[in-house]
Measured scan of single mutants.
Amino acid sequence: GSPLAQQIKNIHSFIHQAKAAGRMDEVRTLQENLHQLMHEYFQQ
Rank of each mutant, 00 (worst) to 15 (best):
L30H: 04
T29Q: 13
L4A: 04
V27R: 01
Q31K: 10
Q36M: 09
R23Y: 05
A20L: 08
K9I: 10
I11K: 01
L30M: 05
Q31F: 10
Q31P: 01
M24H: 10
I11G: 01
N33C: 10
G22D: 03
Q31N: 05
L37R: 02
A21C: 08
F14T: 13
E40Q: 10
Q31E: 11
E40V: 06
H12Q: 13
D25G: 06
Q17V: 09
L37V: 04
H39F: 08
F14I: 14
M38H: 03
D25T: 06
H16T: 14
A5W: 15
Q7A: 12
Q36K: 13
V27A: 06
Q36H: 10
A21F: 01
A21N: 07
A20D: 06
Q44N: 11
L30Q: 02
P3W: 14
E32F: 05
D25N: 08
H39Q: 11
H16C: 15
Q6M: 05
S2Q: 12
L34R: 00
F42C: 09
I8H: 00
D25L: 05
Q7P: 01
Q7C: 09
P3M: 14
K9M: 08
L30F: 04
V27C: 05
I15K: 00
L30V: 01
E32G: 05
A5T: 09
G1Q: 12
D25E: 11
G22P: 00
Q17K: 10
F42Y: 11
K9P: 00
Q36L: 11
F42W: 12
S2L: 14
L37I: 07
L37C: 04
Q17P: 00
S2W: 11
E32S: 06
N10L: 14
M24G: 04
K19R: 14
A18T: 02
Q44E: 11
E32W: 05
E32R: 10
N33D: 10
I11S: 01
K19P: 00
G22E: 03
F42L: 10
I15V: 02
P3N: 15
T29F: 10
V27H: 02
E40K: 08
S13F: 12
A18H: 03
E40D: 09
I11W: 02
G22F: 02
H12A: 07
M24F: 12
Q43A: 11
A21H: 06
K19M: 14
L34A: 02
T29D: 08
Q44A: 11
I11D: 01
Q36Y: 07
S2M: 12
K9V: 06
L4S: 03
D25V: 05
I8W: 01
K19Y: 05
I15F: 01
Q6G: 04
N10H: 08
S2I: 14
I11M: 10
K9G: 04
Q44W: 10
Y41F: 11
G22L: 03
A18Q: 03
A20E: 11
R28C: 12
R28I: 09
L34V: 02
L34C: 07
A5M: 13
F42S: 06
N33Y: 15
K19V: 09
I15Y: 02
H35P: 00
H16P: 02
Q17C: 15
